[in-house]
């Protein structure tokens, strides 16, 4: 048995990721709905839960690509991280402008949660886009 096949055996199946994604979407939905209805959106943690749900949906879509852990998947990861560096720079620039020019106020926890959620989502969405194009 080759190393790649052994690695593929240890990777959970696509169904596992899809099941976790459905569960996480339901949990994130409840948290987002409760924070919106209570007028406290974004509290912070609900964004992280939502971004984790996005991550799991992306992983279920990416499963056939990363299960073999071959050179194409490694290239997708490299290029994805490279593109995300610039995407994050643009996002931070926009966030700085928004904070400077608008009366929007967020706590440190909220700001870090927004940035972390954006980063988690954008990294995995970029992987999905690249896996379709490469």
């Amino acid at each position: 048995m080759t190393v790649q096949r052994f690695a593929a055996l240890r990777t959970p199946g696509k169904g596992v990721f899809k099941g976790l994604a459905i569960y996480q979407t339901a949990v994130a939905g409840v948290f987002v709905l409760s924070s919106v209805l209570s007028g406290k959106f974004p509290v912070g943690h609900e964004l992280l839960l939502a971004s984790t749900a996005i991550m799991l949906w992306c992983l279920s879509a990416l499963h056939p690509h990363f299960a073999a852990d071959d050179e194409r998947w490694r290239r997708i990861r490299e290029r994805g991280m490279f593109f995300n560096y610039f995407i994050l720079l643009v996002f931070l620039a926009v966030l700085l402008i928004v904070f400077a020019l608008t009366p929007l106020e967020m706590s440190g926890y909220q700001t870090v949660s927004v940035i972390a959620s954006f980063l988690i989502s954008s990294v995995f969405i970029t992987f999905v886009v690249l896996s379709r194009r490469m």
């Binding site: 080759t2 790649q4 096949r5 056939p64 690509h65 299960a67 073999a68 071959d70 050179e71 194409r72 998947w73 896996s131 490469m134």
Partner: peptide
Amino acid sequence: GVSRQTIIS
């Protein structure tokens, strides 16, 4: 030792 998606690409 690669994925089928790699062969398709």
